[in-house]
């Protein structure tokens, strides 16, 4: 653990702690949220739009629900969405990139032209179109964003493979009669996992933002489930007079996205050792 923190530097370490902290809050939301029921959506009209106070640290929204509880419950949705988007993009993009880079020739041409088509669309626009077509909802929002994101992972994986494929130890394995599948899984995949992990960490923040943007536009998670993007949108109507409503989820999105970005940078900056992490 100490070694990890040393490698990450102080900024990376702080970011890691922020992310772990938010993740723990999300996991134990029912226990840590001051008003679990309100976090889940139960209205409390009597206290609506209360400014931050000793009882409601971040104030309440237009239905009187505690913002602290709403933000904590929102973390569950937002973190899951971010994770799913990145994971789904990896699951689609990585195999395509590996195959295209490893086999080259017409396989490469075919796969990369498909990839280029997806890259040609502005990501958010495509996501909006998809979400509009499939209807709002968390699963649909995730799929919509992932569809626009996997090409980046395919490109990155392919670039890594092109470098690795020329390495003498890969050629040595081919000459020994090691099968293509074994070479990809045993020699190439472990070496690509490190840059891809860095990219995934860097992308987690933008994934969060894009998912929030979809919710903000009303195409993502629907009320009463707490979601940061949707909360910012709702709070917009009361801004700037009741600033805390939009600010609480907005600042949280900002901090978390920044933390992932800094963490990704810290991971990328560390290139000591040849990928023991990646095994």
């Amino acid at each position: 653990m100490r070694d990890l923190l040393k490698r990450l530097g102080w900024a990376g370490s702080i970011s890691l702690f922020i992310i772990i902290f938010v993740a723990l809050l999300a996991i134990f939301a029912p226990a840590v949220a001051p008003f679990p029921a309100q976090g889940l959506g139960a209205p409390n009209i009597a206290d609506k739009l209360t400014p931050p106070s000793a009882e409601y640290w971040l104030g309440t929204d237009h239905l009187g629900r505690d913002m602290v509880s709403r933000v904590i419950y929102g973390a569950r949705v937002s973190l899951t969405t971010g994770l799913l988007i990145v994971a789904l993009s990896l699951v689609i993009g990585l195999p395509i990139g590996l195959l295209a880079g490893y086999f080259g020739g017409w396989i490469d041409d075919a796969l990369m032209r498909v990839t280029d088509v997806f890259l040609a669309f502005p990501a958010l626009l495509l996501a909006v179109l998809m979400a509009a077509a499939m209807g709002p909802g968390m699963v649909n929002a995730t799929v919509a964003v992932a569809v626009t994101w996997w090409p980046w992972y395919a490109r990155l994986a392919r670039a890594e493979v092109l470098v690795l494929r020329g390495q003498p130890y890969i050629e040595a394995a081919r000459v020994m009669g090691v099968s293509h599948g074994t070479i990809i899984l045993r020699h190439i995949l472990p070496s690509t996992s490190r840059p891809l992990a860095v990219q995934a960490a860097l992308d987690f923040g933008p994934a969060l933002l894009t998912a929030s943007a979809l919710s903000f536009l009303g195409l993502g998670i629907l009320p009463p489930t707490a979601d940061w993007g949707q909360m910012v949108n709702a709070g917009r109507a009361f801004f700037p007079l009741r600033w805390w409503y939009a600010a609480a989820p907005g600042v949280t999105i900002f901090v978390l996205a920044l933390a992932f970005s800094v963490l990704g940078d810290a991971l990328r900056g560390d290139d000591g050792g040849q990928g023991d992490v990646a095994r």
């Binding site: 130890y169 040595a172 394995a173 020994m176 090691v178 074994t182 040849q274 990928g275």
Partner: peptide, 18 residues
């Protein structure tokens, strides 16, 4: 020509498993 991430035992086993 030797994979940097494998042990010598794994490197020598590779032709056999192939």
């Amino acid at each position: 020509s030797l994979s940097p991430r494998l042990s010598i035992a794994e490197i020598l086993a590779e032709p056999m498993t192939a």
